[in-house]
Design a protein around this nucleic acid. Structure first.
Lengths: 194, 194
DNA sequence: GTCTATACCAAGATAGAC
DNA sequence: GTCTATCTTGGTATAGAC
């Protein structure tokens, strides 16, 4: 296999593991095993764990913009907020995409990663304001809902559906009409999830 | 000094450091230095880093409920959501309180901490629904705004006020009328902040 | 292009002195 | 009650073979 393909493989694996355990909590060895290569190879290919994480971050953001662009390009009766929200939920199918971002969002102190995370978040905000044409209030509300959704996934709150009725009630408000899908995808974000 | 007082000192220091660097990213030595004691002493007193973090989590939640209880006990013209929101912002004055929680919210995979984090989050939700009398939608919206506010602090977005007009705009929506206060408190959540 | 072996360092935890 | 010294583990990164 050539380097470019391995790169893809490793990046995908890294996104999943980083999403599950966070930047600091993830070892390059975990990523290597998830990708089916040796630990030194991961480091060799990306230089450092930090650089690898930055690439994952970049990819995650690109994934968001791609999904949103697709929404803006399509015709629909539904209000734009709703459609972008659904597209956002769709990103849960990519293991670790939203959670890697979420982890970066609490690392503002990290000199390199924090900077990238702030810039990335603002890019999303700018997209909502400019490309999507949201007002400041609309964009803020959209992001707030997104952050709560991320939190539900990060907490693995889906594991408590059925056990605690209030957990179900909250999740139903966070993912209106999409709980079944989210529960299914929730399996990804668990130890051992593909 | 007796053990009980040291305990307080260490817990306060630990909350700040955990908030700044997260559970995994924090070393017991950082905490020890922040508290002015030796690293082994921190471990000795709390058993393990994990147990210490769980105590911090417990304290952070207690802080939230104390602040909310005070709001419910007082008379006011303002709507309850607004008053609880302001009380929430007030918690920013306690270094690391909201951010330690936020870090725990993305650690759902951690067997012990994840469980505690989920339970803690649901306690807050239950409080809003029962003690505060919020509807499911009100509680969800309140939490969404809280998670976005936490994210802004975690990202240290306040550092970009003045540099990026969109950062200011977003922060102003997140902390309506309270930006000056938040900017001042933002200094706490920076490397070297007391 | 990918691995094995390993150097090196940082961190949590323990032992035991004072 | 608190410290110094230290054990042990685990994790990033490097060297170098195949």
């Amino acid at each position: 296999m050539k380097a470019e393909d391995r790169r893809e493989l490793i990046l995908t694996a890294a996104m999943g593991v980083f999403g599950d355990y966070g930047y600091v909590g993830t070892t390059t060895d975990q990523i290597a095993r998830a990708a089916g290569v040796s630990q030194p190879y991961v480091v060799r290919m990306f230089g450092t764990k930090e650089k690898l994480f930055l690439e994952v971050l970049h990819r995650a953001l690109a994934g968001i913009f791609a999904a949103f662009d697709a929404v803006l390009a399509e015709e629909s009766e539904l209000p734009l907020e709703r459609r972008l929200g659904l597209a956002y939920f769709g990103l849960l199918a990519q293991h670790g995409l939203l959670l890697s971002l979420m982890h970066s969002f609490v690392l503002g102190n990290e000199p390199v990663i924090g900077q990238a995370a702030r810039a990335g978040f603002l890019e999303v905000y700018n997209y909502l304001r400019d490309a999507a044409g949201f007002s400041a209030e609309q964009a803020q509300e959209f992001l707030a809902q997104g952050m709560l959704a991320n939190t539900m996934i990060g907490l693995r709150m889906t594991d408590w559906v059925g056990e605690d009725p209030r957990a179900s009630e909250l999740l139903e408000s966070c993912f209106p009409g999409k709980l079944p899908m989210v529960l299914e995808l929730g399996d990804l974000h668990r130890p051992g999830g593909k």
